[in-house]
Amino acid sequence: MSVLIIIPARFASTRYPGKPLVELTGADGTKRSLIERSWRAAMAVKGADKVVVATDDDRIRRAAESFGAEVVMTSESCANGTERCAQAYANLRADHDIVVNLQGDAPLTPPWFVEALIDGLKNTPAADVATPVLRCDGETLNSLLNDRKHGRVGGTTAVFGADNNALYFSKEVIPFVAQNFDAQDPTPVFHHVGVYAYRPAALMAYPTWDAGPLEGLEGLEQLRFLERARPMMCVEVEARGAKFWELNNPEDVPLIEKMLRDIGQA
């Protein structure tokens, strides 16, 4: 089955304008933009036949082309990454079995997260959409709770049923837990990793649906599938000692740079 990875990137982020071009310093002092680090993460995925950056901004296009990425231009009217991926897929006139949306704000996404997601969709013919979830340890859970305490939106959390289909995603920390956890303790909270794998038919249907109230309130594109009663399979992945965090706010830059140093990534 052929796999296309699309990295949607826009300049006009509400929370962090210009985010894809923000430079992050690696373990050896090398500075690379967020979009380049996300592209490098995508290029490390085994089994991907093609990787493209999808954007509506010439500054991002020029930056991406400068480090060798293939770029497809999309409209400014795309409301989110999934709509941008759908338009990019149509503009490419692509013909792939699986389309992966690797969002451009997750440069620490380990390749095995995406590989597990692709395998999950390949091995579950009934599934049209899949997304990875990572069980939080105490340190990650405390970071999420600290963001909310200080009025910041950090990562997204997910809850899912016995069939692994998502019940809900939220920028609040769900489910509620009263217990305190040590840094390395496993917790019942799952961090949603911002990657999606779609069958092309599901991806192309998405922009034909109006956004529902939950998507509007949470600002989470994946809720459009749930509000349309379209199941989304959650694939649990393992950190294997890797650090993972998304760049959502300027305050995340030093945190991600520390993680790059911790894992020795240039």
Rank of each mutant, 00 (worst) to 15 (best):
I5L: 09
L34P: 10
L214Y: 08
G194N: 05
D185C: 02
L92A: 10
G155H: 09
D147R: 06
N80A: 05
G151C: 01
M259K: 14
T109A: 13
G216Q: 10
F181A: 07
A63G: 08
F244D: 00
S77Q: 08
V193F: 07
S13I: 09
A27L: 09
P125A: 03
C78T: 09
L220E: 01
A158M: 14
E36Y: 05
L141K: 01
R15W: 11
V195K: 01
I98P: 04
T187P: 00
L223W: 00
A88T: 03
Q179M: 13
G47Y: 08
V22E: 14
A41H: 09
T156S: 02
P17D: 04
D28C: 09
Q222K: 06
A106T: 12
E36K: 11
R40D: 11
A79G: 11
A242K: 15
A116D: 14
R61Q: 08
P200I: 10
V177G: 05
F169C: 10
R135K: 11
T131V: 12
A79N: 10
A106F: 07
P132K: 05
R10N: 10
W112D: 03
G81I: 01
P175Q: 05
D163C: 06
R59L: 12
F160C: 12
F67V: 10
Y206W: 01
E236Q: 15
G264S: 09
L255K: 10
A127S: 08
S2T: 14
Y198W: 15
A86M: 14
S170A: 07
F190P: 08
V177C: 11
H150E: 01
L24Y: 11
D58G: 08
G68T: 05
T109I: 14
V53T: 06
F169P: 06
T14I: 12
P207N: 10
G68F: 00
I6A: 04
R40K: 15
K243C: 07
A266V: 08
Q87D: 09
C234E: 11
P186G: 02
D56A: 03
G81Y: 03
D210H: 10
S66L: 03
S143A: 13
G29A: 11
A183Q: 12
L220C: 02
L217I: 00
